[in-house]
């Protein structure tokens, strides 16, 4: 589990790190949309350049980002192969029962580029933003929903607690699994029924532990005067700076570029 570095916060100092998380959240959203707007090579090149500049600005080593990609390499390969062989059109090569078409090739490459950009782009957000900032940004951006009686603060608090406890519970799962293995449990059995059955000795203690932790945490929060979002202040309130306004400008420019590339059919 430790190998998954995809999108885990990378601590360093950069313009991107200092940017308001709301900008980054909206920015990532726009970037993903723009990837689906553009459908020509000039568009991809533009998206690629934009991403490259962002990576440079983030001060996150490129190798670190690539290492994170390993986790999803399998899904990526399957998607590409699927597109490569399944798209009808002018045949290029064919062997056994499979045929690669010109359209298939072009579509597969575009799909691969899109996916890679999409994943790097969104992981760049989480790499440069702490989960807390992210939940704060979401809470702020969703504020209008409060009028519709959506419990915005509670949702954000839940997310932030979940993020804090995921690593703890993962470690705990590992520990329980090992302890049951020490009692002769077999987790490598082939049949699915056996496997599901063998999960019981892990899941029961894990749930009990999670409930105990939840209980403890609730008490600890109450002891520290937590009583919901009302009357609460923030240690790190989100306030837009000059750099955030500039970032919005850059973002708008990029989005317009992508849109015009599409409309002008480049």
């Amino acid at each position: 589990m430790k190998e998954i570095t995809l999108g885990q916060y990378y601590q360093t100092d950069s313009v991107l790190h200092r940017l308001d998380p709301r900008v980054k959240l909206i920015g990532t959203f726009c970037y993903i949309i723009s990837l689906f707007i553009v459908n020509s090579w000039p568009g991809y090149v533009a998206a690629g350049i934009f991403l490259a500049v962002m990576i440079l600005l983030s001060h996150v080593p490129f190798s670190y980002i690539v290492r994170g990609m390993k986790a999803i390499a399998f899904i990526l390969t399957v998607t590409v192969l699927f597109n490569l062989f399944m798209t009808p059109g002018e045949p290029l090569v064919s062997f056994w029962k499979l045929t690669v078409t010109r359209e298939g090739l072009s579509f597969a490459v575009k799909m691969a580029v899109r996916l890679v950009f999409l994943i790097i782009g969104s992981s760049l957000m989480t790499l440069t933003t702490t989960p807390t900032q992210l939940t704060n940004a979401m809470e702020d951006l969703m504020k209008p929903l409060k009028k519709l009686h959506v419990p915005v603060h509670e949702i954000a608090m839940m997310m932030s607690i979940a993020l804090r406890f995921i690593p703890i519970l993962m470690e705990e799962t590992d520990k329980i699994q090992k302890a049951q293995m020490a009692r002769g449990a077999d987790f490598e059995s082939k049949s699915i029924i056996q496997r599901v059955k063998s999960m019981v000795p892990i899941l029961v203690p894990l749930f009990i532990s999670a409930f105990r932790r939840a209980n403890d945490l609730a008490m600890a929060m109450e002891a520290r005067c937590y009583h919901g979002g009302e009357g609460r202040t923030r240690m790190k309130p989100l306030i837009y700076q000059r750099r955030d306004r500039i970032a919005y400008g850059v973002l708008a420019a990029f989005f317009c570029l992508c849109l015009s590339l599409r409309l002008l059919k480049f």
């Binding site: 989960p131 008490m219 609460r232 202040t233 923030r234 240690m235 790190k236």
Partner: peptide
């Protein structure tokens, strides 16, 4: 302060956790 250190820290960064109580009390930033 409770027994299990893991079950009473709410923040994901040390300083944010320390600020949690004052935030709840409505102390100015």
């Amino acid at each position: 302060v409770f027994q299990n250190p893991d079950n009473q820290i709410i923040g994901q960064v040390v300083e944010e956790d320390v600020g949690f109580g004052p935030e709840n009390m409505g102390v100015p930033t």
